[in-house]
Amino acid sequence: MRAYKVFAIKDGTVIDHIPNGKGLRLIAALKLNDMNTVLTMGTHFTSKRLGRKDIVKIEHKELSPSEVNQVCLFAPTATINIIREHKVVKKFTVAVPPVFTELVICPNSRCITNHERTPSTFYPLADGERLRLRCHYCEKIFSHEEVSLR
């Protein structure tokens, strides 16, 4: 039997409770592959809360709040653990921010933001479990699965 499914890290960030199968998308969205650091991802882990979940561990990198906002778009159930010297020093759940600035690409090809350089601005609309986003400029509403990140 293996001692660990995924090795513990000494310093960095552990993103737990990522919805099953969203781990790779999260890595791409946060551009974690571009960081010169060790990255570990586990998928289909058993979870009491979610049934199945993904986990991502990033060594020597503590996520900033704006990066946490990005996580929220794809993994609203995610929990963030900041690790220092093998200890969890901060633990927080992802919160929906009041606004997403310069993160989301508007899927509306006729939106001004896709035609001249404009800082994209999206407002989240709370609607039970569903997270929807309204473009500040074209006013169209999209489900979070429809949008992509810059």
Binding site: N108, R110, C111, I112, T113, H115, E116, T118, C135, H136, Y137, C138, E139, K140
Partner: peptide, 28 residues
Amino acid sequence: RHPLDGAARRAAEATEKPIINGGDGANQ
């Protein structure tokens, strides 16, 4: 008036003077 959605909102960010939207694409 502008053919793109959201153009009036963008224009309003460029000036302190009031903008009245006479139609921005299929939006408003």
